[in-house]
């Protein structure tokens, strides 16, 4: 099997045994999800770069010192948890939390563009996305988390379950409740969302 196709657990073992190339493959494989996760929380490219770097420094340190890490096929969940802790540390040290996410200079929605759409459709599309984001913000935390990870971070239900520490069935249930709740909010507020 080509090295780039090996499962995370094998690559971690190889890295611990001294194969530096295994780390390069792991970083390459998961960089987008980890970077996207950090950015979705801090909404600042520079801080994201710093936390991403710091996360992997901790990963390297832990793996090389052969402590704390118990590989059970959950490398990504473990790394995301490290990133999550670093993000919390960052907010604690800054004594602030991100506010007005949609008005931030580097809004998530500003990156979603489709050149094939005309100006009017673009406006409609952007408005729909803002509306959906506002509705998502009203959801309970556990449901919001599942929606954000599934649709914005493109994570599988298995990965979400591993990260949140619940079963896949619970994750699916939360997704169902989230969608039901979103429909209720849409009906209650008579929000028009073109499909």
């Amino acid at each position: 099997m080509a090295k780039s196709q090996l499962p995370d657990a094998v690559l971690v073992d190889k890295y611990i045994s001294g194969d530096e190339n295994a780390l390069a493959i792991l970083v390459n494989r998961h960089q987008s999800k980890i970077y996207g996760y950090i950015y979705s929380k801090v909404l600042d490219r520079d801080i994201t770069e710093d936390i991403f770097q710091e996360t992997f420094f901790k990963v390297i340190h832990t793996l090389k010192s052969r402590k704390y890490y118990n590989e059970e096929g959950k490398f990504l969940s473990w790394v995301l948890r490290i990133a999550s802790n670093l993000i919390i540390d960052k907010f604690r040290s800054d004594k602030k939390m991100p506010m007005n996410r949609d008005t931030d200079e580097l809004s998530v929605f500003a990156r979603i563009t489709d050149d094939s759409l005309n100006a009017e459709r673009k406006l409609i599309k952007n408005q729909v996305e803002v509306d959906i984001k506002t509705i998502i913000e009203k959801l309970p935390h556990d449901q919001k988390e599942v929606i954000m990870m599934r649709y914005y971070l493109d994570m599988s239900f298995k990965e979400i379950a591993d990260y949140t520490g619940v079963s896949v069935n619970t994750t699916l249930g939360r997704m169902r409740y989230a969608i039901t709740n979103m429909r209720k909010v849409i009906e209650k507020n008579k929000i028009y969302l073109p499909s």
Partner: peptide, 13 residues
């Protein structure tokens, strides 16, 4: 709108 684009943002690296 019948766009098939996903809500997920383009890959951020």
């Amino acid at each position: 709108l019948y766009s098939k684009r996903k809500l997920a943002t383009p890959k951020m690296l």
